[in-house]
């Protein structure tokens, strides 16, 4: 059992040798535990590629999460605009009175 209640880390998986290349996958790990339960979220982060002494980091892009974040941002801007519109409408009604 982990000692911390909440743990956020980047962990490396076992390296894989493919010809002259050596790849080490990395993952984001979020672990939350409490007495009687726990939650783990494991998401691929990047791949470290080593070849001829040169190391390169290739990030893993999650298209679905990128789309969701983009849509959340659009939704946030939309709601903010609606609130502003409502506030300005109220002010114009008050001025007319």
């Amino acid at each position: 059992m982990p000692s911390q209640w909440v743990e956020w880390s980047v962990r490396s998986a076992d390296p894989v040798q493919a010809g002259p290349l050596r790849m080490t996958p990395q993952a984001h790990v979020l672990r939350i535990h409490w007495p009687g339960g726990g939650f783990v979220w494991n998401h691929p982060a990047a791949v470290i590629v080593e070849r001829d002494g040169v190391t390169e980091r290739l990030p893993v892009i999650d298209v679905l999460w990128a789309v969701r974040l983009g849509l959340l941002a659009v939704l946030g801007v939309w709601l903010f605009g609606l609130i502003l519109l409502a506030l300005f409408s109220k002010r114009s009604v008050v001025k007319e009175r």
């Binding site: 059992m1 962990r11 996958p25 990395q26 993952a27 726990g38 783990v40 494991n42 998401h43 691929p44």
Partner: peptide
């Protein structure tokens, strides 16, 4: 619950 944390290792994904 301990097995839960053992299973969710980077090698598992």
């Amino acid at each position: 619950i301990g097995r839960l944390f053992d299973v969710a290792q980077p090698n598992a994904i």
